[in-house]
Computed example of a mutant assay.
Amino acid sequence: MNLALLISPEVLAAVVRSLAPLLLLGAGGLICHRAGVFNVALEGLLLLGCFTAVAASAYTGSAFLGAVTAAVAGAAAAAGFAFGTVTRYGHPLILGSAVNLLIAGLTTFALEALFGVRGTYQSPDLARLPHWFSGAAGIPGIGPALAALTPLGLLALAAVPVTHLVLHRTIAGTRLRGVGDHAEAARSLGVRPDRYRFAALVLSGILGGLAGAELSLGAVALFTENMSAGRGWIIVLALLLTAGRAGPLLLALACYAYTQALGFRLQTVGLPMQVSDAAPYLATLVLMVWFGARRPRAQNQAERKRFSFGHRGG
């Protein structure tokens, strides 16, 4: 196989397009993880962001308003999830799964109600996010990757590293990590765990909405039913198996984005579509299991105790 096919500028550009929404969603999931919140609603938040971004863009003609609407919708959905789990002590796995199913059903219904179509909505008049560096496409090597960046793509590149710095270099981040590590100890120092966890969920909703806007209005301008395609679940598993560490999380997401981009590229030389579709999930799962297996058993047990599943102790 030609090595240039594996590391071509086109593959690198596809990696950037695939990785941007994952980084935004992953940053929100990382914040929740460190706050001790088991946020399995990431899949639904991403899908909601995709739909609301496209709908707002279609009705207003502005991709910016589409992204803002997606962020607001994500925050509202996450706030409802936070009310059920943090305020009312509901089981986060059950409520999170309910949110995912509800959003999947609502977006399918709204797609037909608002646009009169089923499956996919696409229009040539649909406003897309701008590509500020499109003139750099002719630069050898990295040019296509730079041209693929949108404003949300630039935000995504900084999202996980900035989140890591905030969590470890600010007072608010230290308190949030304290809430996740030992809620009772944090409460004894005057910190309200419920407030930090509620805020973490709402922030993950905002980032999830922006991730959806990037996915639906970045490289393409369309909405397809179940457009999130399991990306939220990939991040949930990555956070669990990497213990919420930013470095391994970035590596897992980059692995997913690269294998997805490479799979699309290899379809042009005869790779079956079923193989290219399954490759990102399989490669990422193998990598994450490897991370999990390398951790000491005591650390794995401590990780399972981090999360509050509906009891008032957290």
Score class of each variant (00 low, 15 high):
residue 288 M to A: 14
residue 186 A to E: 07
residue 55 A to R: 01
residue 208 G to S: 12
residue 200 A to P: 06
residue 116 G to A: 06
residue 218 G to H: 08
residue 200 A to E: 13
residue 70 A to H: 04
residue 258 Y to M: 02
residue 45 L to R: 12
residue 88 R to A: 13
residue 10 E to G: 11
residue 22 L to N: 08
residue 126 L to P: 07
residue 156 A to E: 00
residue 273 M to V: 15
residue 79 A to W: 10
residue 67 A to I: 14
residue 146 L to C: 11
residue 184 E to Y: 07
residue 89 Y to F: 15
residue 226 N to W: 03
residue 158 A to S: 12
residue 275 V to D: 08
residue 146 L to T: 04
residue 15 V to A: 03
residue 123 S to D: 15
residue 23 L to Q: 11
residue 178 G to T: 10
residue 130 P to W: 06
residue 219 A to S: 14
residue 112 E to V: 13
residue 177 R to A: 00
residue 144 P to S: 07
residue 134 S to I: 00
residue 211 A to C: 13
residue 198 F to S: 04
residue 75 A to R: 09
residue 131 H to A: 13
residue 31 I to V: 15
residue 68 V to C: 12
residue 229 A to L: 12
residue 44 G to L: 05
residue 36 G to Y: 00
residue 136 A to N: 03
residue 35 A to E: 00
residue 123 S to A: 13
residue 257 A to E: 09
residue 57 S to N: 09
residue 94 I to M: 11
residue 114 L to W: 09
residue 280 P to L: 04
residue 207 L to A: 13
residue 302 A to W: 11
residue 115 F to M: 02
residue 52 T to E: 00
residue 65 L to R: 02
residue 263 G to M: 05
residue 227 M to I: 10
residue 180 G to I: 12
residue 192 R to W: 05
residue 251 L to S: 03
residue 308 S to W: 01
residue 248 P to G: 07
residue 291 F to G: 05
residue 106 L to P: 02
residue 113 A to P: 01
residue 224 T to R: 12
residue 84 G to T: 09
residue 158 A to Y: 05
residue 13 A to Y: 04
residue 258 Y to C: 01
residue 257 A to W: 01
residue 144 P to T: 08
residue 300 N to Y: 07
residue 57 S to C: 02
residue 278 A to R: 04
residue 310 G to C: 08
residue 142 I to M: 13
residue 42 L to C: 01
residue 3 L to P: 12
residue 51 F to M: 03
residue 206 I to F: 10
residue 10 E to C: 00
residue 109 F to T: 12
residue 12 L to E: 02
residue 103 I to N: 06
residue 209 G to F: 03
